[in-house]
Design a protein around this nucleic acid. Structure first.
Ligand SMILES: [Mn+2]
Ligand SMILES: [Mn+2]
Ligand SMILES: [Mn+2]
Ligand SMILES: [Mn+2]
Lengths: 217, 217
DNA sequence: GTAAAATGTTAGAATAGACTAACAAAATTT
DNA sequence: AAATTTTGTTAGTCTATTCTAACATTTTAC
């Protein structure tokens, strides 16, 4: 009923809506690495399927049905990532690409079994929430590290980028979810932060890195 | 380089070659549930990719490259089935359909990890050999139960049909791989067999069932 | 508040994979 | 050996997904 291609569009729409509020065709096509007219005509198709509300020159919106469909794909994606890390021994930097494919497998049983074997996890290995069986997910209001101040002590709760390069960067510094971070200094010129955690002292993180780290107080 | 669709064609060619010797377009199209002209034009495409030898009105043949490619997909399929049964707790009747999809996942790491976690298995849950990393598989010369005689005592080594219906039929009779079967009688009229195994006595199996059971002496 | 830039849309074409209808060759029956 | 059936091929069409080129609208800049 919904093709693999369409599933990827829906997922993109949901995540762009989450990070930017409004979604336009330019963002969508950039996100998916396709040209604008391609995205445009797919939006019309998804509108016919009642998954998207499309009006010329207006921002794109998912319908409730579209949100649910997208949420269920993200559920499959994140359950897969969790399974790959917890049950198969992959590193958190290895799983996104594989999950990107496995999320399109058609088999209720397969994902229900994963869920069960994992003990019904609520978060994936990158700290993102796993949507429930209705495709609904609760976004906990984390802060980016960028918004913290000198002296703050916070815990690393999630990362907003699952690329292998970024996660290998964190691996190299033994920076893991749950780590207790203390902010020692913030360079006012470039907003880079000096922090300590675990045994580590005086790690300097650029603002580009800090804005990808979500923390709780 | 090879699409999901093409992968399924290659697999079909390999398994038809194994079971029938020569493969023609009619068999191939029936096996895949497509029309003859569709199969025909795909054969020309695969011939251009040097995966198939195509000559008008001649039987279809896989090239060495084609055999290897097909073997590697079957490797992924069977490793998956083994993983689903041994590591995830699925029944042998549930795994074929899921594996039919997962065999197309592009990730060396994923299947290598499965292989490692499984301890480098040589056979899948249905008793079929798992091809090696070069796509080569050794076919052990099993016999179908049909070819056995009254008084023979044999072990169930493999089944040649992985459909859920057939495997549920075997489940209902607690007939598993490895079972030691003794042939009590063969009905000459319809070739149905009366056998005993485990605690079971006097199970009658039709010839249709017997020919799908591969045994060792 | 016009001009320029950015964004969005339409039209037309390409490729992959499937189909039907019509024709051709090979195999099988009489 | 001719007729019939089966099998295989060609030609043309369709849908899904992508593209480029051209045009339209909206937003931003001056
Ligand atoms: Mn991911
Ligand atoms: Mn995907
Ligand atoms: Mn199988
Ligand atoms: Mn398949």
């Amino acid at each position: 009923m919904v093709s693999l291609t369409e599933e990827n569009y829906l997922k993109a729409l949901l995540s762009l809506a989450k990070e930017k509020g409004e979604v336009n065709v330019t963002d969508l096509s950039k996100h998916l690495g396709i040209k604008m007219p391609t995205a445009n005509s797919m939006m019309k198709k998804l509108a016919e399927k009642k998954l998207v509300v499309y009006e010329s020159y207006k921002p794109l919106r998912l319908t409730e049905k579209g949100k649910k469909t997208a949420g269920l794909i993200i559920r499959k994606h994140r359950l897969t990532e969790m399974f790959l890390v917890d049950k198969m021994g992959f590193g958190w930097e290895q799983v996104h690409e594989i999950a990107e494919q496995i999320e399109h497998i058609h088999s209720q049983d397969f994902f229900e079994k994963m869920d069960e074997l994992l003990g019904y996890p609520k978060f994936d290995p990158h700290g993102s929430p796993i949507p429930d069986k209705n495709g609904k997910m609760e976004w906990i209001s984390y802060q980016t590290l960028t918004h913290c101040n000198v002296g703050d002590v916070v815990h690393l709760a999630a990362v907003t980028n699952s690329s292998a390069e970024f996660l290998k960067f964190l691996n190299a510094r033994e920076l893991k979810l749950g780590a207790r971070l203390r902010i020692l200094a913030i360079e006012s010129f470039d907003k880079s932060m000096t922090i300590t955690y675990d045994g580590r002292s005086d790690e300097v993180l650029s603002a580009l890195v800090c804005e990808k780290l979500l923390v709780t107080l």
